[in-house]
Design a protein around this nucleic acid. Sequence first.
DNA 1: GTCTATATAATGATAGAC
DNA 2: GTCTATCATTATATAGAC
Lengths: 191, 191
Amino acid sequence: MSESTTRDHIVEAADKLFYEQGYEHTSFTHIADAVRISRGNFYYHFKSKDEILDAVINERLANTRSALEQWEAENSKPADRIRCFIQIMINNRDKIKLYGCPVGTLSTELTKLNHASKAGANELFSLYRTWLCRQFMLLGRKADADQLAMHLLARSQGVATLASAFHDEAFIRQEVRILCDWLAGLKEKNS
Amino acid sequence: MSESTTRDHIVEAADKLFYEQGYEHTSFTHIADAVRISRGNFYYHFKSKDEILDAVINERLANTRSALEQWEAENSKPADRIRCFIQIMINNRDKIKLYGCPVGTLSTELTKLNHASKAGANELFSLYRTWLCRQFMLLGRKADADQLAMHLLARSQGVATLASAFHDEAFIRQEVRILCDWLAGLKEKNS
DNA sequence: GTCTATATAATGATAGAC
DNA sequence: GTCTATCATTATATAGAC
């Protein structure tokens, strides 16, 4: 059983706010209001706002690794595993519609800020990329596995961006269907 | 002949900085340094920073309308016109690699800020959407023209996001090739 | 039209009481 | 561990001289 410490609450609230409002726009006051602590108390747990960001990124990295492992453990066929990835757009459609993809939007923001932690944020992309690449290899696409992984990542990013701009949930479902067909077409070519 | 006024210089510098650094992170000091004027002088030309943003968005809208008209005037075939749209990823690859897509990243930022001008930023997406939709109709895809327009927009957004995260120019060229093949495949189906 | 000087509010961060 | 009080800095914005 894991104790829920104040530090955990801070990271959890910051994670949510960074996603919904962006990193730079989220102030200590915002997080303090959410966690119900004073602004001064942050500096007992973290040295700076950047350190909170790093904690959030590390938390997301851990959660992502865990999710990827689970998809792999629960599905023996690589195509089913890849479908798990595609399916998250459906599962998270409500938040995607409002805030886009948490991976892509944080990466974009930190890249523009030229922030020291942008590499850490992009590591989230790399986790998915490497994992998808491995699944495409298992699917018999050894030669272009990484290209397919990047292609699928890009497709999902585009869906999130447009769904958020137009607040269009039907568009997500539509594109997920197209992506599943695309995946099925790949399978047939290499089975 | 158009006179280049101080106001124009401000909008031009702000346009560039908003793209490279983001809207919120760009301060009057940044713009003032670029235009070589004092901070106080801004308020002769604009009432607020938000008003500069609106001017930037209107400038981008005008430039986009003009580019779309030109693509239409210079190409009689709808497929060639759509290829012009796809081609901008190649033409702007250097900046995309560094800062992503100016349309998508501004839309994403203003959406997260819940900024009053987010609708204006999304109107940029709508310009492309409507124009692409018309081209797909001319291509004989009357039934799913808007769906194809959204699909192509999303594909290009995803390419820009990933190219920026990984600073990968080859990826842009690769995806542009795939998109051109996709477009050619559509043509054959409906010619 | 452009400047300097300044007002005002918010930010990240620190010091020290409890 | 959490608080209040405060500092230093930066931000947008205003007033008024030139």
